[in-house]
Amino acid sequence: MTYILNRLLSVILTLFLITIVTFGVTNILPGDVAMMIMGTQSNPEALEGLRQSLGLNDPLIVQYGRWIGGMLTGDWGTSLIFKQPIAELLLQKAAASAVIVVMSMTIALALAVPLGVWAAVHRDKWQDTTSSTTALLGVSLPDFFWGIVMILVFARWLGWFPSSGFVDPAEDFLGTLRHAFLPSLALGLGLMAHLTRMTRSTMTGILNQEFIRVARAKGLSERTVIWRYALANAIGPVITIAGLQIGYLFGSIIVMEFLFSYTGMGWLTYQALLNRDLPLIQATVFVVAAVVMLTNLAVDLLYVAIDPRIRLG
């Protein structure tokens, strides 16, 4: 319990720091919100009036307080370019991206864990070399390359999956999955490399432990020894890395959603940045940061569930 409270406390503190940084950085950026709204040719008096009504002339600390207050009460402001309430907009796009995040991580783990285990079990043999070559190939080529390959192979030649677009999950969930699959696969291949290496190295360490020999001495089958006794011990660090990769994923998702014209969070961020939609940028950054933090918290709690030794701390 103490551990969970500790972690929650630090998450809240970090989120608070993130709001300050986000707010600070977006306000230092050149560009005037009022001018963005009214256009560069507008009347200076009208501009000034808009600034007044938006509160842009207030001291920064007051503006920050207002922003935080709004964030806390669910009033996230209105997007300048989409003319829509930001909270609503973000929720919709975040859901679309969540499909990609979950799917790509599932693909990455589903490939990486068996590959890493396989490499560790056959350490320094051809299986190990194959596994590390595959992993290296995944990481050394950028994800957009894989994206292009996916489009060529699965959309253009085979025609199994659509090459672009997005379907609202409320209307056609299977359609959403079909549209999300190729970008997810492309991202998953990039994520897989690290996870494979991590699985291999933790498994190698665990397989040399005495309790593995003890498990074999009990007459347990190799399958039980490797997939239960060893993997239960080795999976923790792999999941931790996967959690950290969620943060990295938000970076690459921008490119990938753009490539596949998939209108999710990445696509939204791209639009917001391109058009200097400050309120939207601030909210997006905050949401991404919060999601990354909470994912990592969830991962750490999962780790606690897996490894009883951490419960004491």
């Binding site: 005495e210 309790f211 003890v214 006794y229 011990n233 897996i306 490894d307 030794r309």
Partner: peptide
């Protein structure tokens, strides 16, 4: 055949 090993600290699986 039963077997006992040297290191009691590492002979048991820590997560079970």
């Amino acid at each position: 055949i039963g077997m006992i090993f040297q290191e009691p600290m590492t002979a048991l699986n820590p997560v079970f």
